[in-house]
Structure formats: C-alpha cells, structure tokens
C-alpha cells in the first residue's frame, strides 16, 4: 500500500479546493432542489388515491413547466461529474512534469492511479449522497409524508446505483487520460462517447431492430415483442440504458418490466400491474447492475494495465 493513502488524501484535498468541484456541486444541488420543488407541487395530482410509495413519487413526478424528474437530471449530470473528475487524472500529471517526479518516490506505480480513482469515487459518493439527503429532507418538509422503510431502502439502492454509474464514467475518463497525452483530447473523447451513447444509441438500435423485425399496425404482439427485445438488447450496450432501466425498476415499483412497450401491451391486454416488492425489483435490475460493474471494471483495468506498462518519460 506504499503511498496509496498519501495520494488519496492529497487528491481528495485538491478536489475539495478546486473550482471544478464547486461548480459541479452548485449545478447538481440547483437541479436537485428545483426538480424536487416542482415534484412537490405536482405530487397531489400524480399520486391520486394511491397511498403507497408517496414519498418515492417525489423522485419520479415532473411538472409541465419543467419536464425533468430528479433521476432524469441525475442521469444527465452523473456522466458529467464522472468525466469532470477523471479526464485529466494521468495526463495532467504528465504534462505538468509531476509524473516522473512522483514515480521517482518509493511508491508503487499503481498507488498513483488507484489513489486518484478512489479519491474521485469518494467525491462522487459525497456529491450523490449529499444531494439525495438534501433533496429528501426538502421533500419531506414540502409534502409532510414520511418515507416508509422500503422507500428508504429503495432510495439507498438508487444512491448505490448512481455511484456505480458515476464510477463507470470516471473510469472511462481515466482510461482516456492514460491513452491521450493532452487533457483537452481526453476531455473531448469522453464527451464524444457520452454524446454518442446519449443521442445516437437509440436511433441506431431502432434502425437495426426495425430492419431485422419490421413492425407496423398489423404486426402481432409476438412481432412487436421480438422487435422490442432486440431494440433493448442493442440499447443496453449503452451504460446510460442500464442505469435508466435500473433506477426505473428501483424507484417505480409499479413497473413490472423495464420495457415501456411491454408495459403498454400489458396494460392494453388488461393486466393492470401492481407494485413489485423490493426483492423482485432487485431481481429485475440485477443483470443491469452487473453490466455496469463489468463495464467499469473493464475500463479501469485497461487504463491500469496501460499505465503500468508505460514508459515514464518527462518529455
């Protein structure tokens, strides 16, 4: 563990003092508070006569003047946070001339990348936990309905999944910071991947699934189901989809399936869904969680191996 703790401490202190982190904090808090405020105003209409999971509804409901719910905001901001914390991990040390100097000290080379990754992960955790706690507290004050035990558990899982999602984007950004010498290139590459997955993955999945299983008004339910499963399979390459599906299953227990199409089919065929218990929701999102974890591990492992084998030149 030579040096790991020292590097972790220094990086954490640096993050806390950096303007970058203050900007992220302000951004995320503002978004969180705004969405919860809108949700609290619209919650009465949304909940209706239902008495279960009222508190969770705070995190789902959105208003007409601001069509963003809290999880949707998180799904946009978390990649930005992860990228912002990771994109210059290694290459900034290199260009500033600190890398050779640090690695000439009696520390293991991986302590540097591990320490920095752990510090970033800690920052993500602090950010997400604090925003969820603040937003929950605010929501509690606004609607006055306390959460049930299961709702608290679901929120906790939501936090864990969100941290995992942030870890994925950070490990991708760390990978680019090892691969590219310039910080601007690694930042741009990370953002490019995010934009691609965010904007084009759905279109591409739609094109491929539509070509393989064409559907129209006359299609049978089986054909629609085929199309839908292929569409979702391709979409799941994107970690954004994995995240969206898992938080939907966690925060919207009434959703029995992660596919909106299948939900619609279920509703039209007269199968009104009832809320799933937490254990069943977990079973539903287990593959998504493992997928996210695997993507994170792969990105970090590639970055780690590349960094360990690299020649350390100061120029």
């Amino acid at each position: 563990m030579n040096g790991l703790l020292e590097i972790f401490r220094k990086e954490l202190a640096d993050s806390f003092n950096s303007k970058r982190f203050i900007i992220l904090f302000v951004l995320v808090y503002m978004a969180g508070i705004a969405t919860i405020y809108i949700a609290a105003q619209n919650i009465r209409a949304a909940v209706g006569d239902s008495t279960s999971n009222i508190f969770l509804n705070l995190f789902i409901v959105s208003g007409s003047n601001m069509p963003f719910s809290f999880p949707l905001f998180m799904s946009i901001f978390i990649p930005i946070i992860g990228i912002a914390l990771g994109f210059d991990t290694v290459n900034s040390e290199r260009t500033s001339g600190n890398l050779s100097r640090l690695l000439a000290q009696p520390i293991y080379r991986d302590s540097l990348i591990n320490g920095k990754f752990l510090a970033g992960l800690t920052m993500i955790t602090i950010l997400i936990v604090s925003v969820v706690v603040i937003v929950s507290g605010l929501g509690l004050r606004l609607i006055g309905v306390p959460p049930e035990a299961e709702e608290i558990l679901r929120l906790f899982i939501f936090v864990v999944v969100s941290i995992l999602y942030g870890a994925f984007w950070m490990s991708l950004a760390v990978l680019f910071s090892v691969l590219f010498r310039k910080t601007s290139t690694s930042a741009l590459a990370s953002i490019a991947v995010w934009m691609f997955l965010f904007l084009f993955m759905g279109i591409i999945a739609n094109l491929i699934a539509g070509a393989v299983f064409p559907v129209n008004q006359d299609s049978t339910v089986a054909q629609v189901a085929d199309y839908d499963s292929l569409y979702r399979m391709i979409n799941r390459i994107s970690p954004g989809t994995l995240y969206a599906e898992s938080i939907q299953a966690i925060l919207v227990p009434i959703m029995g399936s992660s596919s909106p199409t299948m939900m619609m089919i279920g509703i039209y065929s007269g199968l009104m869904p009832s809320p799933l218990p937490l254990s069943q929701s977990l079973v539903l999102v287990w593959p998504q969680l493992v997928g996210l974890l695997a993507l994170t591990a792969v990105c970090f492992a590639v970055a780690y191996i590349k960094f360990m084998r690299e020649e350390i030149r100061s120029t």
Binding site: S96, S100, R101, P106, S314
Partner: peptide, 17 residues
Amino acid sequence: PIRVKSVVGYMPEKIGF
C-alpha cells in the same frame, strides 16, 4: 523499484510541481 527509489533521487529534465 521501491528499494531503488528509496535510495535514489531523480530530477527529470522537465521537472514540474
């Protein structure tokens, strides 16, 4: 490497702080 680096000091060509 740890044993070597605890007795060897190195100042690279382009040193940075």
